[in-house]
Design a protein around this nucleic acid. Structure first.
Length: 494
RNA sequence: GGUCCCUUCGUCUAGCGGUCUAGGACGACGGCCUCUCACGCCGUAAACACGGGUUCGAGUCCCGUAGGGAUCACCA
């Protein structure tokens, strides 16, 4: 079998989009499954819209998702360069070839003229195709810098044997002579992709199905250039809840926004791979499982609606499946962003000195891990986990409604007794087991049930009615802090 | 508007002519568990867009219709 070479070719005109990530992912999985080569190419011929910032965002996004490229920016291969702006001589050379063979010609029509004629055609109900005015032009106007057009074959049909959509037939009469090089000397998309994909030895072009209509014209260029045709596969789009193409108004669309909201790359990739691809009834996939089982023929050809609820569920799964220590390391910067941890704590962690010493350090890795263990089953995102864990890192404010209901005069002596018993626990033995004994003692003495005792304590130490198990909560807070908060709460009861 | 693509529960999907009284998952609802919230477990409701063919037999093949999407730039 031939060595498979695929590519992801984003244009750096914004942030890396969720849809782009899925396209990249399918290419990457296809390459990895088949032991092929995955290439990252930057399509930045539109100088007015491309930015270096966007390139960085793309590289970051790819790296965060764990999609490594074999050739591309920072990874030179035999087929570079991998930025279109660095490939100008290659495009020029190919244009010359087409000009020489008569498959391309210069066109002196101005954008204004073209626009006018397009509108006129549309008004008369005719397709707005270029009229080939300049094809046989004898005396070119000197004051106009020409563009180069590809001379399309408008006879017969072009058949795309698409890997995903199946056989798609186009009448060549729908094609027109499109511009392949602009007056500023830069190639346009349809031409640049063909040149790049051929010269980079791409064997399979897997891209969004918004490109399906471009395929017949690109196929003609392969022919005209004498290049071997790759196989095409067109992936369906990702839609928003209203079935319109996913965009900002549906919420976050940049992959790095998801990182900031506390989604794990494992979850994003897992969610995205299941959007349009399936493997029996399996929902949860590790990257290894995806690579092992990935196949083009189980890709759906229908568009899929992006569902945040399911993403949350998958993220929840991976938060619980990943080692707590790693989650703890990811949680800390988020706490810092929320002003619940000092920047030094984050810096300390990066230096790996962190958590080695102080037991009383609120942000030690060990303590953070306990928080993770206590909160992860109720967290859909790391941001949510941080939000739920506020009271472990700062004094809580007690919710008035909860205080009114649970911190009553009747419960005051119970809390006082409990506090005394907690204080009597030796520092060295302040554990789940000892706390349990204390609670049971109080319950026996008072005849109260667990719920009657636990809930006031919970409110006293966390400020609210929701927290992990009360023993875990107190243990994480530590003896001193627990007693302090209880005392404070009791003193508020009159 | 032309061309192209798509159409199974609200959503992601299984299904590749008989095993479909259509399966799984998210979400919803109900219950169990329980110190709160969750998790977990059990259960319920929920779909083959419509109409014609082909066939002994169609969710599965073909053709229409409808609906949705994409595309028609000196953007990619």
């Amino acid at each position: 079998m031939q060595n498979i070479r695929v590519r992801f070719a984003p244009s750096p005109t914004g942030f890396l989009h969720i849809g782009g990530v899925r396209t990249a992912l399918f290419n990457w999985l296809f390459a990895r499954h088949n032991g092929g080569t995955f290439i990252l190419r930057i399509e930045d011929t539109d100088q007015t819209r491309s930015t270096d910032e966007s390139i960085q965002a793309i590289l970051q996004g790819m790296e965060w998702c764990g999609m490594n490229w074999d050739e591309g920016p920072g990874k030179d291969g035999a087929h570079g360069p991998y930025r279109q702006t660095e490939r100008l001589p290659i495009y020029r050379e190919h244009v010359e070839k087409l000009l020489a063979s008569g498959r391309a010609y210069k066109c002196y029509c101005t954008p204004e003229e073209l626009d006018e004629r397009r509108k006129a055609a549309l008004a008369q109900g005719r397709p707005p195709k270029y009229d080939r005015k300049c094809l046989e032009l004898k005396t070119p106007p000197l004051e106009v810098t020409p563009v180069i057009r590809f001379r399309a074959n408008t006879e017969g049909q072009t058949v795309v044997n698409d890997l995903i959509k199946g056989k798609v037939v186009f009448d060549n009469s729908v094609l027109d002579d499109l511009i392949i090089m602009r007056s500023d000397g830069w190639p346009t998309y349809n031409f640049a992709v063909v040149v790049d994909d051929s010269t980079m030895g791409i064997t399979h072009v897997l891209r969004g199905d918004d490109h399906l209509n471009n395929t017949p014209r690109q196929m003609q260029m392969y022919e005209a250039l004498g290049y071997q045709m790759p196989q095409f596969g067109h992936l369906s789009m990702i839609l928003g809840s209203d079935k319109a193409r996913l965009s900002k108004r549906h919420g976050a669309t940049s992959i790095m926004q998801y990182k900031e909201m506390g989604y794990l790359p494992e979850a994003m990739v897992n969610y995205l791979v299941r959007l349009g691809w399936s493997f029996g009834d399996q929902e949860i996939f590790s990257v290894e499982e995806m690579i092992k089982n990935f196949s083009l023929d189980s890709i759906s050809s229908a568009a899929a609606v992006f569902n945040p609820d399911k993403l949350n569920w998958i993220n929840h799964h991976w938060i619980n499946a990943k080692p707590p220590e790693e989650i703890a390391k990811l949680l800390l910067p988020i706490l810092a962003d929320m002003k619940l941890a000092p920047p030094e704590a984050v810096a300390g962690m990066r230096e790996e000195r962190y958590g080695a010493n102080a037991e009383d350090d609120l942000w030690s890795l060990g303590r953070l891990e306990k928080v993770v263990l206590a909160q992860r089953e109720k967290s859909h995102t790391l941001a949510e986990m941080a939000e739920l864990s506020k009271y472990f890192f700062a004094e809580p404010e007690i919710e008035p409604k909860a205080a009114e209901k649970f911190l009553t005069a009747e419960i005051k002596p119970v809390l006082e007794r409990l506090m005394a018993l907690i204080e009597a626990i030796p520092d060295s033995d302040f554990s789940h087991a000892e706390l349990e004994k204390v609670f049971h003692t109080v319950m026996e003495e008072t005849g109260l049930k667990m719920g009657k005792v636990a809930q006031p304590v919970r409110i006293a130490v966390t400020g609210g009615t929701v927290s992990p198990g009360i023993y875990e909560t107190l243990e994480i807070l530590g003896k001193e802090e627990s007693v302090k908060r209880l005392r404070e709460a009791v003193s508020q009861i009159h």
